[in-house]
């Protein structure tokens, strides 16, 4: 029972970075109509940047956060560059072309990361206040996991406020619905697009930074993650942020529980889920209407 609680918390903590990446992806898709298949690579870059910035030191919490936001900012810039150089040309092409271009971009980012960061494994220490375990009742739980969950809540709330209660959020929603009309009202849609890309990629980069103490930052990490976030988005439904939240938690929990109960199958967790969803409700759990069937 105790270990179950620990596994659950672990699962939720695993789900948070997944959610950040998935929500960034969903934002970009909702506003720009672009399937940024390369989004997982931005996560990876964020983790690497953060690892290099820390250079193995255990920081105080404020510094840790500062560096994490710094890594996110770097990834935001990377995202805007990608948008300008690659995706801006493809706004009127079909989904398949976008997918291929994003895949190509991902390959480039993977190659770039090997060139810049090499093939060594980086270890990122947790920030000093959260290095130990916290006891919930009699159950020891890694303190960092709780921190990640809290950070996730804060970011999610901030995102909600931005999209629903701010002027910028209004413009973003307008451009998402009808880019041409928004422009005809004076909204600078290209700038909004760049901003959304920056925000979405920053989320991915932040996720990478926050997740780095919990995983080993090395080559090959992206492979799981690159597919993982996409699986999450498919399960939750393309275009739904709530879906992304629910699906991330679901996948995180699934994996964590499998590690506890059936370790040999822990990697299959998300695939089992996605197969179920694709067969029973191909448009995803939180989306109404038919799945995207055209190219």
């Amino acid at each position: 029972m105790n270990q179950l609680l620990s596994a659950v918390i672990n699962g939720v903590a695993t789900g948070v970075p997944l959610f950040l990446v998935a929500s960034g992806f969903t934002l970009i898709y909702g506003v720009m109509g672009v399937l940024n298949f390369a989004h997982g690579a931005f996560f990876m870059f964020g983790a690497y940047c953060f690892a290099v910035m820390l250079a193995g030191q255990a920081l105080s919490l404020p510094l840790f956060l500062l560096y994490a936001l710094g890594a996110a900012a770097v990834i935001a810039v990377l995202g805007v560059l990608s948008e300008r150089l690659v995706f801006a040309r493809l706004y009127n092409s079909g989904h398949m072309i976008n997918l291929l271009a994003a895949y190509a971009l991902m390959l480039m980012l993977i190659g770039l990361s090997i060139l810049i960061f090499g093939t060594t494994t980086y270890h990122v220490p947790r920030p000093s206040p959260f290095r130990g375990a916290v006891h919930i009742g009699t159950v020891p739980v890694p303190a960092y996991n709780l921190f990640v969950i809290a950070a996730g809540l804060v970011v999610a709330a901030g995102l909600w406020f931005l999209l629903n209660k701010s002027g910028l959020g209004m413009k973003i929603r307008a451009v998402a619905h009808d880019r041409t009309t928004a422009r005809a009202l004076g909204v600078r849609a290209p700038l909004v697009g760049m901003g959304v890309f920056a925000l979405g990629c920053a989320l991915a980069g932040l996720a990478g930074a926050l997740d780095s103490p919990m995983i080993s930052v090395a080559q090959g990490m992206d492979a799981t993650f690159a597919i993982q976030f996409f699986v999450v988005v498919i399960i939750g439904g393309l275009g739904s942020t709530w879906g992304a939240l629910f699906a991330s938690l679901l996948v995180g929990l699934m994996e964590s529980l499998l590690v506890y109960y059936a370790p040999a199958w822990s990697q299959y967790g998300m695939y089992i889920l996605v197969v179920f969803v694709l067969l029973l409700r191909p448009q995803g759990l939180f989306v109404r209407g038919p799945a995207i069937t055209h190219s």
Binding site: H95, M96, F230, V274, L278, P282, A291, I292, T293
Partner: peptide, 8 residues
């Protein structure tokens, strides 16, 4: 399935 779901 077809489209993106199929590719997935």
């Amino acid at each position: 399935l077809s489209g993106i779901a199929f590719v997935m």
